[in-house]
Amino acid sequence: MTALISTQGLHVYYGNNEALKGITLDFPAKGITALIGPSGSSKSTYLRTLNRMNDLIPNVTITGKVTFKGQDIYAPQTDMVNLRKQIGMVFQQPNPFPFSIYDNVAFGVKIAGKTSKEEMDQIVETSLQEAAVWDEVKDHLHESALSLSGGQQQRVCIARVLAVSPEIILLDEPTSALDPISSSQIEATLLKLRTNYTIITVTHNLQQASRIADRTVFFMNGEVVEADDTKRIFMNPAKKATEDYISGRFG
């Protein structure tokens, strides 16, 4: 397996607290990987190291390596804007900017450089289509994105990430603030995107992981207990701790 992105011996400390205890993981190109684990298992911390979102937290120390297409993303010469274009992130709360739907999707592209109106129209349309929200918003692209429902907002946020042509999409509990119908729309969207993008998603919804993920990684106490094909994790995991967690025997 050639990894598109991988971590080697990744440690993260918040002050003296060791949140991640040496994580070594490979993510192949394309497909969906779900990161699961109890609250406080540091799976979100891990996700955020993959596009350096933890850099903004004071008092954080990161050791080990994160390699994206053979390059160490923590090397000093890394261009952060470019990195986050290639590795985009979607958060738990839909967070559209207080502009129109169109401008939300165009935002990242505008920052990256000059684009003609025609090109931009095309990018916005394609991105919204890929995010499976185009049909619902195409007639009011210039209305505020905040007027949309939570599920629609989240898909617009996904379109905003797609607009800058990323290779990897990181999602941090993308459906936990949504109702079941909106959640299943997001799931359907991710299932369509998985053939063209590498998707890594943190989720507390185990059924969601089992429904959509190709691979599942189980985190506990800042360590990876088990990483395997999702079917194996949910049918016959190798580790007892994994089985206990996914069968709800914890606590």
Binding site: L206, Q207, S210, F234, M235, N236, P237, E243, I246, S247
Partner: peptide
């Protein structure tokens, strides 16, 4: 209960 692994 949507059981998994040995429960299922």
């Amino acid at each position: 209960y949507q059981p998994v692994t040995t429960d299922l």
